[in-house]
């Protein structure tokens, strides 16, 4: 870990100002990922601006019928919030499928969006990594890539975004409110994270100095027909090999609206609009689900150790769609494999 200075911001303007005043600085919320990365020397910020105590921890109704999730509300407080449980149970399930209670108690909503990939090589300074050191090469291509991307990867990077919460968010499509040196703006969730392309060093589209202040969920929460299915190498405390977030609106057995997003498969939470379009107006049948699932993975590319993910994703999509259509899921349910 490199030496750094530290300050605790009192309000958003103070935080933005403080960060702008320090070269090589970073915001820190719960610190559940950044501090690890600093210990490994992957991140070497010269100055940390602690934003965890900013007055952004509220979860409150929005005039448009939506719900505002404050950026510094913890993942735990968000998952167990009564409004979230009742109106956005998909988000509740996805958050609870991630990390451990201890981590969720510390991690913030803003920080969840900002967490970096778990690529083995990104974490290990002994190996080249374009995300960590642009131009040095990608060790995961041709290396051990069990947890790596099958969709939207580039020749520079095949890393995945590790969040569960963000997969549900991709399906729920909130706007991300940010403040920065140039003022405030909103970013559609879908546009927040980016694909690696030639610049895998950038995980998202935030401009320099911008700080997430809230996630504004739209009114539609898919609370009746939803599923978050996470498949991993152990039943808790492991990142997703493949996860699927589904939200459906149903009229009888006809799907009238659909959301479908995948985790563990791409550099960003992978929402598939064309698959959603294929679902709309269709009967909720195994045949429909199979067709949609095949469509989602039609352009997937394996990298060797993760080839299985293509078939796994296909099957997981079918299962998640079926679960969502059945409408038996409840907030608090977390899939544990056999039971």
């Amino acid at each position: 870990m490199y030496p750094f200075t530290y300050s605790r911001a009192t309000d958003v303007a103070d935080a933005v100002r403080d960060k702008a005043g320090h070269d090589g600085s970073a915001y820190v919320g719960g610190g559940t990922n950044l501090i690890d990365l600093m210990k490994m020397n992957v991140e070497q910020p010269a100055h940390l601006v602690n934003v965890a105590k900013l007055p952004l921890a509220k979860i409150e109704d929005l005039p448009n019928g939506g719900l505002r999730l404050g950026a510094t509300a913890t993942n735990s407080d968000t998952a167990w919030n009564e409004q979230v449980k009742a109106r956005y149970p998909l988000l509740n399930q996805a958050i609870l499928a991630g990390a451990s209670p201890q981590l969720r108690n510390a991690a913030t909503n803003g920080g969840n969006l900002m967490q970096r990939t778990r690529c083995y090589y990104f974490y290990d300074l002994a190996t080249p990594c374009n995300k960590r050191e642009p131009g040095s090469g990608c060790s995961a291509i041709g290396g051990f890539n069990r947890i790596h991307a099958i969709l939207g990867a580039s020749e520079a990077c095949i890393a995945t975004h590790p969040s569960d919460m963000c997969v549900a968010l991709a399906a729920l499509a909130p706007t991300v409110r940010v403040s920065g040196p140039q003022g405030e703006r909103s970013i559609a969730f879908e546009d927040f994270h980016r694909l690696p392309g030639d610049h895998p060093e950038f995980d998202n589209t935030l401009a320099e100095g911008e700080l997430i202040t809230s996630l504004d969920l739209p009114e539609k929460g898919f609370a009746k027909h939803f599923a978050y299915l996470k498949l991993r190498d152990r039943h808790s405390y492991a990142f997703a090999l493949v996860s699927v977030a589904v939200g459906l609106e149903m009229d009888g057995d006809t799907i009238t609206d659909a959301r479908l997003a995948l985790g563990g498969v791409a550099h960003k939470p992978w929402r598939d609009h064309s698959a959603e379009a294929l679902l709309k107006g269709q009967h909720a049948t195994a045949e429909t689900f199979g067709r949609v699932a095949a469509h989602v993975v039609a352009n997937a590319v394996g990298q060797g150790s993760n080839d299985f993910k293509i078939e796994l994703a296909r099957r997981a999509i079918v299962r998640a769609l079926k679960q969502a259509a059945e409408g038996k899921q409840e907030a608090g349910d977390v899939y544990l494999g056999g039971q």
Partner: peptide, 17 residues
Amino acid sequence: RYVNHNFAEYHIPVNAD
């Protein structure tokens, strides 16, 4: 070189298992 040399990626059973 061992690549999963940490507790996040070297999996040992947790309570749920």
